[in-house]
């Protein structure tokens, strides 16, 4: 497939890179695991096939053979340039050799996922196909996609029977609203904050700023009161860690976060809620809701997906 238009930030991603944190190499991977997994399932891919993650604005792709694609996550208003058919989220979409599909500005959400039957064929680097721009590895030559790049796609079973079965499948996309509730589990440095600080954090809404990217989502709102400084001896952090900087404002770390951080973590977002965070737009309001780890883990056991 050829990248006709890459948009501001399109990268190849899979679940992520595990086992290299101790070298300072992060996990990366998709921001929205829910959309990723559903997109793959719609085209009959295994769980961890690489997909394209696009960001907010338009992108376009030309396919060089008949295949199935699926879009999940942000509603990027995809449309075939050949015959004008609209790409509906939550269903596989058949494309013909030579057909171009163009995506526009996201109507809701931020990150769109495009899975192609078979999966994107880029080399596995350190156990993953995920692009890590900072470490210059994975994806297409370790960088974001550019106009004119050509990606290989693995062969898939697209027999009449398989297509019929896949075209019947559907998922309803998650609802991305302007008010987002994220369940949080108290973090390892919750003791750095005063009662009042914790109350502020849990009871007021924080606004997503435009200074948000795959490394972290920066929030604006009332200052969270600490007992003293927010600096700690650098510690391990994870996707979903909520660090409070010396300014008293929270940053939620995202997929491309640095491996270690020196600010106190007040809480950590439940893994199940990260897809909502991944789709948060500047101006959206985040409401944090305290949750117990046992409850979050009990619930996850009952889901059909494995993350």
């Amino acid at each position: 497939m050829e990248i006709i238009s890459a948009g501001p930030l399109s990268t190849v991603q899979d679940t992520g890179r595990f086992g290299y944190l101790e070298y300072g190499i992060g996990q990366s991977g998709v921001m929205d695991r829910d959309a990723f997994q559903k997109a793959n399932a719609l085209v009959g891919n295994r769980d961890n096939e690489a997909v394209i993650e696009t960001t907010l604005l338009g992108s376009a792709f030309r396919f060089d053979k008949d295949t199935l694609i699926a879009c999940m996550g942000a509603d990027m208003q995809g449309r075939s340039e050949t015959d004008g058919r609209i790409v509906e989220r939550g269903r596989a979409f058949p494309v013909r050799a030579g057909e171009t599909v163009r995506f526009g500005m996201a109507k809701c959400g931020v990150r769109g996922y495009i899975a192609v039957a078979g999966g994107i064929d880029v080399p596995v680097v350190m156990g993953s196909r995920s692009t890590d721009c900072k470490c210059r590895i994975g994806g297409y030559e370790g960088r974001k996609l550019k106009d004119g790049d050509v990606l290989s796609v693995f062969d898939a079973d697209l027999s009449e029977k398989a297509r019929k079965r896949l075209l019947k499948k559907s998922f309803s996309p998650l609802q991305y609203g302007a008010d987002i509730v994220l369940r949080v589990i108290p973090g390892p440095q919750i003791g750095y904050f005063t009662e009042r600080g914790i109350q502020t954090f849990l009871e007021t809404a924080y606004e997503v700023t435009s200074e948000s990217d795959r490394m972290g989502i920066r929030l604006r709102g009332p200052v969270i009161e600490g007992k003293g400084g927010m600096d700690i001896v650098s510690d391990g952090i994870t996707f979903g860690s909520i660090q409070v900087t010396s300014s008293g404002l929270p940053i939620i770390l995202a997929a491309d976060h640095q491996t270690t951080g020196g600010y106190a973590q007040i809480a950590v977002v439940a893994g199940r809620d990260l897809p909502y965070l991944a789709q948060a737009r500047p101006g959206d309001r985040i409401h944090f809701q305290k949750a117990a780890i046992e409850d979050v883990q009990r619930e996850r056991k009952n889901r059909w997906y494995r993350w």
């Binding site: 595990f18 086992g19 290299y20 944190l21 101790e22 001896v233 650098s234 510690d235 391990g236 952090i237 994870t238 491996t259 270690t260 893994g271 883990q297 996850r300 056991k301 494995r306």
Partner: peptide
């Protein structure tokens, strides 16, 4: 995977 730092070990697991 596990991530050793100055003073702690962060352990990632599949819940």
């Amino acid at each position: 995977e596990t991530l050793p730092t100055y003073r702690s070990l962060l352990i990632f697991y599949d819940p």
